[in-house]
């Protein structure tokens, strides 16, 4: 039996995403919950200790534990945003943008046109990953303080536009060796049955448009 390459790629990407999701959940629900039980236990013990040296040692330990719990939670969210499965693409995008502004200092205006429609979880994750890579590129390369993301919900398709007015680059110049990120974005959209276009010019900023047919 021979499977087409595109189907194999789809399958690989999908199983990889499932695995990432499983790890994220395990970190959050399993490891995170256990650490939290330890944290409350230590706090309880600290309350009952008189010896000041022991008390202060325990306090330091609880502080380290609190940091670790926070790290595990952030790592889990970074791997797979829980909002994506629970509240859908737009909510996940919104919460990611908040984190993004707090991390890179870049303001992102989020615009939505039309009524949000149901997108399958498999497609949600594709759109989200491509959107994440587009924003990462803005932080890395655009040298700008703001960007705009537009969701356009049409009757038959969803379009997501990601635009910045940063330094831009020559998007016609084929330099495939260095454009792996862009190539993967394009491939992911194609495998999901959608489209990916990018327009950029030096000093003119960059414009990316993703479309995905809706059933």
């Amino acid at each position: 039996m021979v499977m087409p390459v595109s189907e194999i790629s789809s399958y690989i990407i999908h199983t990889q995403e499932e695995e990432i999701k499983r790890i994220a959940l395990e970190l959050h629900e399993g490891v995170g919950q256990n650490l939290y039980s330890l944290f409350t236990g230590l706090q309880f013990i600290e309350g009952g200790i008189e010896n000041p040296v022991m008390k202060s040692a325990l306090k330091d330990m609880t502080a380290v534990l609190a940091k670790t719990i926070q790290e595990v939670r952030l790592l889990s969210v970074e791997l797979h945003p829980p909002a994506l499965s629970a509240f859908g693409l737009f909510a996940a995008t919104k919460s990611y943008i908040k984190l993004y502004t707090n991390t890179f200092g870049i303001e992102v205006e989020l615009i939505t046109i039309g009524k949000e429609r149901l997108v399958s979880e498999k497609e949600n994750i594709v759109l989200f990953r491509v959107f994440q890579e587009a924003l990462a590129n803005i932080a890395k390369h655009a040298d700008t303080s703001c960007a705009t993301v537009t969701f356009r919900w049409e009757e038959t398709f969803l379009a997501i536009e990601i635009a910045d007015e940063g330094v831009g680059f020559d998007s016609n110049e084929e330099n495939s060796r260095n454009n792996l990120g862009l190539a993967v974005m394009k491939e992911r959209m194609h495998l999901a049955g959608g489209t990916f276009t990018i327009q950029s010019q030096r000093e003119q900023g960059t414009y990316i448009k993703l479309t995905l047919p809706l059933r």
Binding site: E71, N102, T103, G105, I106, E107, S145
Partner: peptide, 12 residues
């Protein structure tokens, strides 16, 4: 620019 004012760096 003023981006530094909004940046929160994660511990470590």
């Amino acid at each position: 620019n003023d981006k530094y004012k909004k940046i929160n760096v994660r511990f470590g």
